[in-house]
């Protein structure tokens, strides 16, 4: 059980670090959203899974509460993170930021007026 917790913590920390580095290193908003969203979601999921395993291993009332809360936090992150980053990408494109060195930009060709925002 301890080995599992350590492995999850290490994976989580490694991918969160990768997300932070990707945020610094990538050249434009869209690629930064790529790196930051994927890596921090994956890393946070594993960090939180480590806490859930710890709670289950502890057992009893306190451990059970801890595991349930950790699973709920995991579920929220999994559902809300991609939606938020999608909203940010859409807002960035509508505010006129072009993708860096893009070989093709179909959305620019179609234009944002392809439907009314409700």
């Amino acid at each position: 059980m301890n080995g599992l917790i350590y492995a999850f913590l290490a994976i989580g920390a490694a991918f969160n670090a990768l997300g932070a580095v990707a945020l610094i290193r990538f050249p434009d908003v869209y690629t930064r959203i790529h790196g930051a969203t994927k890596c921090t979601t994956f890393g946070s999921i594993f960090s939180i899974l480590a806490v859930a395993v710890y709670g289950i291993a502890q057992g009893g009332g306190a451990g059970g509460t801890m595991a349930v809360r950790a699973f709920l936090a995991l579920l929220f992150l999994l559902l809300t993170n991609p939606t938020g980053s999608h909203a940010l990408a859409r807002g960035a494109h509508r505010s006129g930021i072009k993708p860096f060195r893009a070989v093709v930009d179909r959305l620019e060709e179609v234009g944002h007026g392809h439907r009314e925002v409700p």
Binding site: I33, A70, A92
Partner: peptide, 30 residues
């Protein structure tokens, strides 16, 4: 740009949630 800052803030929010859960386990505070 403002969008870059918003992305950074979103990333920080995710990391803060993970940090809070980890510290909750570390101190035993649900």
């Amino acid at each position: 740009t403002a969008a870059d800052r918003a992305v950074a803030l979103d990333t920080i929010n995710t990391l803060v949630v993970a940090t809070m859960v980890l510290l909750g386990a570390a101190f035993g505070l649900v």
